[in-house]
Amino acid sequence: MLLDIGFDAITVKAITQKADISRKTFYLHYSDKFDLLNAIVDKQLEELTAVCEKKREMGCTEGTVLWFRYFQQRKAFFAALFTTESTVLFRHRMLGFIVDQLNSRLEDASPGKDTEVLLNFMSRAVLGVLEAYVLGQLHAEVEEIAEQVGKLLEQIINGQGPDAQTNMVSMQKDE
Rank of each mutant, 00 (worst) to 15 (best):
L3C: 09
L3V: 13
D8H: 04
A9V: 04
A9M: 07
A9C: 07
A9S: 13
I10F: 00
T11G: 10
V12Y: 00
K13W: 03
T16H: 04
Q17F: 04
K18P: 01
K18L: 13
D20H: 09
D20R: 10
I21V: 15
I21F: 05
S22A: 08
S22E: 04
S22M: 05
F26N: 08
L28I: 09
L28Q: 12
Y30M: 01
L36E: 02
L36D: 02
N38E: 11
N38V: 01
N38C: 05
A39V: 03
D42C: 06
E47W: 05
L48K: 07
L48H: 06
T49R: 12
A50K: 09
V51A: 03
K54P: 01
R56Q: 14
R56P: 03
E57Q: 12
E57R: 08
C60E: 02
E62K: 00
G63K: 00
T64L: 03
L66N: 01
L66T: 02
R69Y: 04
Y70R: 04
F71E: 02
K75F: 00
A76K: 11
F77G: 04
A79Y: 02
T83N: 14
V88H: 08
R93K: 14
R93I: 05
M94G: 05
M94K: 09
G96W: 04
G96A: 08
F97L: 10
I98V: 15
L102I: 15
N103R: 14
S104L: 12
R105E: 10
D108H: 10
P111C: 06
D114S: 13
T115H: 10
L118V: 10
L119R: 06
F121N: 11
M122L: 15
V126I: 14
V126S: 06
V126P: 03
V126L: 14
L127I: 07
G128S: 13
V129I: 15
E131R: 13
Y133L: 08
Y133K: 03
L135N: 06
V142F: 01
E143L: 05
E143G: 01
E144F: 05
E144P: 01
I145D: 02
A146R: 00
E147S: 14
Q148I: 12
Q148H: 12
G150K: 00
G150I: 01
K151P: 00
K151W: 02
L152A: 13
E154W: 01
N158P: 00
N158F: 01
G159Q: 04
P162H: 10
A164Y: 03
T166F: 13
M168H: 09
V169C: 03
M171T: 09
Q172K: 09
Q172V: 06
E175R: 10
